[in-house]
Design a protein around this nucleic acid. Structure first.
Length: 215
DNA sequence: ACCCAGGTGGCCC
DNA sequence: GGGCCACATGGG
């Protein structure tokens, strides 16, 4: 756990989405695709102020209004229709997020992946942060950091990258949640440009992959 | 005037 | 299974 404890000591516990409802998490995860969190916050504030931040409301929302509310986060036309369709599906098939999230991790992931606008990272983020399942979220920062630290090809498949990490970290839900958040925090500061830069706090003594874990 | 952001889906080979 | 492309606003 050298990498995690180093990051945690440097950036502190991130505590992403711990106080939010499952509905808010779902929407936030979709809105944050290829978008800075700052812009997502504007869109989420708009939705909240309009009283629209629930699956029930989103499922039957007026598309033009939804587009206007989520506009600040970009890709607003496709995100609006996708959020409405996803909400409509979850409401119709599970009566809401609670019902959906009762499914076991594997079935939940497959079901989320079947929805338009939900890819592997989005499915795993929803499962992890809204559903409290132990599915590690692999994003672009994670790829760059792992690639740079351990000399691993950043282009390997999502599943391979995910296994590489989960095989080498502590098996606790809190670690799954926080380590991903720590990777993003590190990434925002040290790998905006392609490779992880040399001055990042992990460069000291992290030359081999097994240092991700002590088991 | 660039480049990038906590990706996804479609199309092509 | 991989490579390229559109999708779009706001910040550096």
């Amino acid at each position: 756990m050298r990498v995690y404890t180093t990051l945690r000591g440097r950036f502190g516990f991130q505590d992403w989405w711990s106080g939010d409802t499952a509905d808010e998490i779902l929407v936030g995860v979709v809105l944050t695709q290829q978008t800075s969190w700052k812009n997502v916050e504007r869109a989420l504030t708009n939705l909240k102020d309009a009283g629209m931040l629930s699956i029930e409301k989103l499922a039957v929302a007026d598309l033009k209004m939804l587009e206007r509310l989520v506009k600040p986060c970009g890709f607003y036309r496709q995100k609006a229709v996708r959020i409405r369709n996803i909400s409509s599906y979850i409401l119709a098939n599970h009566k809401g997020m609670t019902g959906l999230l009762r499914r076991r991790a594997g079935a939940l992931r497959r079901e989320l992946l079947s929805l338009d606008g939900v890819g592997e990272e989005t499915a795993d983020a929803v499962a992890l942060y809204a559903g409290n399942k132990r599915t590690f979220v692999v994003d672009a920062y994670t790829r760059r950091i792992i690639g740079r630290l351990y000399g691993i090809d950043t282009g390997i498949s999502y599943g391979k990258m995910q296994c590489l990490i989960t095989d080498n970290i502590d098996n606790r839900l809190a670690v799954y949640k926080d380590l991903h958040a720590q990777f993003v925090e590190l990434g925002k500061r040290f790998c905006r440009t392609r490779p992880l830069c040399r001055t990042c706090p992990l460069n000291e003594g992290c030359g081999s992959f097994k240092l991700l874990s002590e088991r």
